[in-house]
Each structure stands twice: as C-alpha cells, then as structure tokens.
C-alpha cells in the first residue's frame, strides 16, 4: 500500500445523510483526522445538523452538541468554561457552522467570543448559501451567483463577505483557509489550529453539488479549480503574520471554475472579466502582505545597525493614497 499522507483513523463513519458528493461531509471527515477523538463539536442549525442522521444514530465518533442557529460561539465559550471548571480544560472545543451561521446570524456571538479570545476553534464550512433550507443567498454568496432568492436576472450584485479577514481584524492567534480538495494542507491546518490556545478560526470552502448545480462527481475538481485559479487562496495567519501555504505557479483562468457550475450559467463575458480582475487584485494584495510581513520578521531578527553618524531626524512618512474602486451601483432589471 502506498504511504498514507493523512491519518488513517476515521472519526466519521459512512451512513450519514449528506447528498452524494457533499464537500462539507469530506471537510468534516478531514477535520476530525486533524483534531483527534477528544474534540467536543458544537453544531448550529445547518446541513451538518442533519447530516449525522436521526437520533440516536450519528456518524460522528466525537461528542456533539447542537446549538441554536445564532449561538455557536457563545455555546462553545460556555462549554469550554464548564470543562475548565470541572478540571477538563484540555478537551478541545470546536464550533462547526455554515456560512449563514457564521457570516450572517452568528457573527455577533463569534465576534464577541473572538474579542474575548475564548479558547476554542471555530470552523466555518462555506458552501456560499443557506443550503439546508433550499439554497437562499447568504452574506457569503459570491457576486453574480444564482440562488433561489437571487434568481435568474436578479443574481446577487454585492461582494462576498471576507470572513477570514474579518476574524483577522480581531487579532486572534490563528486564522486559516482550507480546501478539502487539498487534504494534506487541510489536515495540517486542523492539527495546528488544535494545538494552539485562544480563538482560532478555520474557513473552509465546501463544495455543494446540490446548490452549486454540478454533477456530484465533480466535487473535488471544482474545489481544486477554486484554488488553482487564485479565487480561494490557501493561507494562514499566525500571530498576525500571513503566509500563503500553497499556490499554483500558473493559475488557471477563473472562468474554468465558474463555467463548471450551473449557478454561474448566466454570467456574461464582462462579468467574468470583472470577477477575474477582482480575483487578481485580491491575490496581489495577499502576496504583497505576505512579503511585507516577511520583511518585518527578518528586520526584527537582524541585529540593529550601528552607525557612527548622528541619526538624522526621520522624514515625515509619506501617506500613500489608496484608490478604492467603487462598487457598481445596485442594478435590478
């Protein structure tokens, strides 16, 4: 047998009720490989509240608590406090919520917990809509995507919320993005996140063949294209420093990713070009940030320069004017 590149232990078993080819199911399976058997999961209303199966059956070999839609982070904080108080503070607590439960309804509980730096890992599996209730748009639905509440001709006209960066702005110890189409990178991040203290956030792109409208067999490929096109970059931010963990040297056009999915079927060439331009700009922003922070670390590590000449008064910093492209006006035909 070829050498395994991810742990063999399965903490999720077959027989659950996710749709065929569900990316969120693969995400949970990989996540648990990184977390280990001791984790306590807090799951709010979302597809994953249903996927484990009808009680008293479950596909998860870890303890699971179901929370109300908006309170994942609050409940995880409370469970952690209870465990600490009863001498079991080493038990890892993990919130596992959808994008609706994270970017929309659960954001205030999450933001509050992150600000208090509560000791748990929060995982958002982002399938870019409210899938469990029938594909309604969420704050995490990308621009120009079809959903049942942004139907043909009325596709979403605003950008996707950038949740990992919103969490990074809370100055928490660890923020990372992961993609189940890249299992080794995924499991490594889950392991690292589990090993740290304080609020940690993992943002997962979870393909949903049912809502994204493509054949279930394409799940891994569609996810792969998202990262291969730089649309969903793989990075981690540890103690405020960003590092791109893997990236293709030659990205594929974002059109390949979009055209693989029925939800983007009606996109015009101009809209694809616009998305491509935005993906490129965001990617360059990430690269620039990575380079800047790397330089800062090197400078910190280097011994201070000793100069005989008196140091001149530092010049006033030149403020750079950043041009922000205005978003297109809301347009409803």
């Amino acid at each position: 047998m070829a050498k395994l590149t991810i742990p063999s232990e399965e903490l999720m078993v077959g027989g659950h009720v996710a749709c065929p080819g569900c990316g969120a199911a693969l995400a949970m399976r990989l996540l648990l490989k990184g977390l280990g058997p001791k984790a306590v999961m807090v799951i709010p209303a979302c597809c994953w509240a249903v996927i484990p199966g009808a009680m008293p059956g479950t596909c998860l070999k870890v303890s699971t608590v179901f929370s109300s839609f908006e309170s994942t982070a609050a409940m995880a904080s409370g469970i952690k406090a209870g465990l600490r108080r009863t001498g079991r503070g080493d038990v890892p607590v993990v919130g596992f919520a959808g994008d609706g439960g994270t970017a929309d309804i659960g954001i205030q509980a999450l933001s509050g917990a992150a600000e208090r730096n509560e000791d748990f890992l929060y995982v958002c599996y982002d399938n870019e809509a409210y899938m469990n209730t029938g594909i309604q748009r969420s704050g995490s639905t990308p621009e120009y995507s079809w959903t049942t509440t942004t139907p043909r001709g009325l596709e979403k006209r605003t950008s996707k919320k950038d949740m990992p960066m919103i969490l990074d702005a809370h100055r928490i110890p660890y923020v990372a993005t992961a993609n189940p189409s890249f299992p080794e990178d995924f499991v490594a991040k889950a392991k690292k996140a589990a090993s740290l203290k304080g609020t940690r956030y993992l943002h997962i792109l979870a393909d949903c063949p049912t809502g994204w409208k493509h054949d279930p067999s394409q799940m891994v490929e569609v996810g792969r294209l998202a990262t291969m096109s730089h649309l969903f970059p793989l990075y981690e931010i540890e103690e405020g420093r960003l590092r791109i963990t893997w990236a293709p040297s030659n990205p594929v056009p974002v059109e390949k990713y979009l055209r693989a999915q029925g939800r983007f079927k009606d996109l015009t060439a101009e809209q694809i070009e616009e998305i491509q331009a935005e993906v490129k700009a965001r990617w360059e922003g990430l690269k620039a940030r990575e380079a800047r922070e790397k330089k800062a670390v090197e400078k910190e590590a280097a011994p201070p320069e000793v100069s005989a000449a008196p140091t001149p008064h530092p010049a006033a910093p030149v403020s750079e004017t950043v041009y922000v492209k205005p978003s297109p006006p809301l347009h409803f035909p």
């Binding site: 078993v13 077959g14 027989g15 659950h16 009720v17 199966g53 009680m55 008293p56 059956g57 479950t58 596909c59 998860l60 070999k61 699971t64």
Partner: peptide
C-alpha cells in the same frame, strides 16, 4: 450516553 455511530447494519444510505 445518547447516541451510537451508524454502521452498515443500521444505515440504508
């Protein structure tokens, strides 16, 4: 205390 993991003999997925 409350749940068992589904196996081939309990699931008809």
């Amino acid at each position: 205390p409350m749940a068992w993991t589904s196996t081939a003999d309990t699931s008809t997925a």
